[in-house]
């Protein structure tokens, strides 16, 4: 395993070094812009997104246990999907001379996916509640 690790590590360091050299061939103001984006990504994750999710996790501990697995699944599915959808939801790249670009009703599509995910999560949560209490559930909670 030592050999595998050494070879993989050296190849990795070499490739990363080559990438850094390629980056440095750009004009310096572009290199700076790339660094702002790359480190801005780390700051946005570690400073904003991750604490937000930790906060949601803390808030969830106040909720009933049968509800929590469904909420975890809902967050894991809808959170990343919403981030992926930002460029199309905002339609930032739309051009008036090209109607074939960004030509779907994105908000409606996103709402349909959210609605379906919430419905599936609700059914799963209600089942978990039924099995945890042992009693049939009279109806959906208000």
């Amino acid at each position: 395993m030592r050999v595998v690790r050494a070879v993989l590590g050296l190849l990795g360091a070499g490739a990363a070094g080559y990438g850094v050299l390629r980056l440095l061939r750009l004009p310096s103001e572009q290199v700076l812009a790339v660094l702002v984006w790359a480190f801005g990504g780390i700051v946005a994750h570690d400073g904003v997104l991750a604490p937000l999710v930790v906060g949601l996790g803390l808030a969830a501990t106040a909720l009933a246990r049968w509800l929590r697995p469904s909420l975890v699944v809902l967050l894991v599915v809808l959170g990343p999907l919403t981030l992926v959808a930002v460029p199309v939801l905002g339609r930032f790249g739309a051009r008036s001379d090209n109607p074939t670009l960004l030509d779907r009703p994105y908000l409606a599509g996103w709402l349909v996916v959210v609605g379906l995910a919430v419905a599936v999560a609700a059914v799963t949560a209600l089942r978990a509640r039924r099995s945890s209490s042992g009693d049939p559930v009279p109806g959906p909670p208000a």
Binding site: L8, G12, G14, A15, A16
Partner: peptide
């Protein structure tokens, strides 16, 4: 350029 940085640092991490 950053594709090389990403795949290289990934291999190093593994």
């Amino acid at each position: 350029a950053l594709a090389w940085v990403a795949i290289g640092s990934l291999a190093l991490h593994v």
